[in-house]
């Protein structure tokens, strides 16, 4: 097992915790490809592990998109998950998602919602619908103050506007087939609400106060990397938060971790076990590997590179 990070602040390292529980974190069959198309975003969210924002110009170029499409054609993933930054801001995104939709039974696009209101956002929403893409949208809370504390001023109303438009396109309707899921990350240095309870409250609040419907809600812990780590350091919460993540280690989550069944490719075409290892600069296999040179999918049993940020995926119910 490879390891980056050595247990900061006197906290047992993630590797040691796995060993103490007699667990190994190894890859299972690779069934999903996550495609990070770049760091350009129209928001600068306080919890972003990749430090995305309007000032970033790293985006996937056409040649790398073709390599991703070729990979999807060769390996036929059960699902392909397009994320960023804001995918809507990447030139050529239409070509990428249209090609990928034909090569996988489940195309997922992650959206910050706000980008759907601006520029090509409206046209892209319709393209998502036509491709029957699953949309996973970020919404941390059902009130404006918490939402804007995490995502910036003016984001609440623009998020509501985007959700109403998606409902209007047929996304997120009860019994409908156009799937719209929400993701809620905590607005600070605390753990997420239990998913089932939070989903019930989101469903009630959004329907009652805003007439908005959606299918599922995922609640995930913030990962202590990037801009969120800077917040933790600045606010004096870093040690307490890391202790909380480590203390909440749930050995039952390891079996279902997404890094076991997913490959992540970044905008440069480089491979990682997951988007968080991407943010931490940890390459798949320990050395920089390119998607275009991938001859075979990882063998089941191949070790996953780990670091102490992995605690964010094993706390409580885990990140699967």
């Amino acid at each position: 097992m490879m390891e980056i990070g050595q247990g900061e602040f006197g906290i047992e390292s993630f590797r040691e915790t796995l060993q103490r529980h007699e667990l190994r974190l190894c890859r299972d069959r690779t069934s999903a490809l996550q495609v990070n198309v770049g760091l350009k975003c129209d928001l600068t969210c306080g919890h972003c592990h990749l430090e995305c924002g309007p000032h970033r110009d790293e985006t996937m170029d056409g040649a790398t998109m073709e390599a991703v499409i070729d990979c999807a054609r060769r390996f036929r993933f059960d699902s392909i998950d397009v994320t960023g930054g804001a995918p809507e801001l990447v030139p050529g995104i239409e070509r990428l998602i249209t090609a990928l939709a034909a090569l996988t039974p489940r195309l997922i696009v992650r959206s910050n919602l706000v980008a759907l209101n601006e520029g090509r956002g409206a046209e892209l929403s319709e393209l998502y619908r036509d491709l029957k893409a699953v949309l996973v949208a970020s919404l941390p809370a059902t009130n404006s103050s918490q939402t804007e504390a995490q995502r910036g001023a003016g984001v609440w109303e623009r998020s509501m506007q985007a959700l109403r438009r998606l409902n209007g396109l047929g996304y997120g309707l009860p019994g409908g087939t156009l799937q719209l899921d929400l993701v809620s990350n905590p607005v600070g240095a605390f753990l997420p609400a239990p998913q089932r309870q939070a989903e019930k409250k989101f469903r009630s609040d959004l329907q009652r106060k805003h007439g908005i419907t959606f299918h599922g809600l995922y609640t995930f812990a913030n990962v202590p990397l990037g801009r969120f780590r800077s917040f933790l350091e600045r606010s004096g919460n870093l040690q307490g938060y890391l202790e909380k993540l480590a203390a909440g280690f749930n050995p039952c989550t390891v079996q279902g971790l997404m890094c076991r069944s997913q490959l992540s490719v970044d905008w440069r075409g480089r491979l990682h076990d997951c988007d968080f290892n991407l943010a931490a600069g940890i390459a798949y296999g320990g050395e920089a590997a390119l998607l275009s040179e991938l001859a075979e999918l990882p063998e089941p049993g191949t070790p996953v590179a780990v670091g102490d940020h992995c605690y964010a995926c094993t706390v409580g119910s885990g990140f699967t």
Binding site: S145, Q146, P186, F190, P192, A193, P194
Partner: peptide, 12 residues
């Protein structure tokens, strides 16, 4: 305070 935030309540 921590428990309320972690159970999904907001400051309001």
């Amino acid at each position: 305070t921590r428990a309320c935030l972690e159970k999904g309540s907001h400051l309001g």
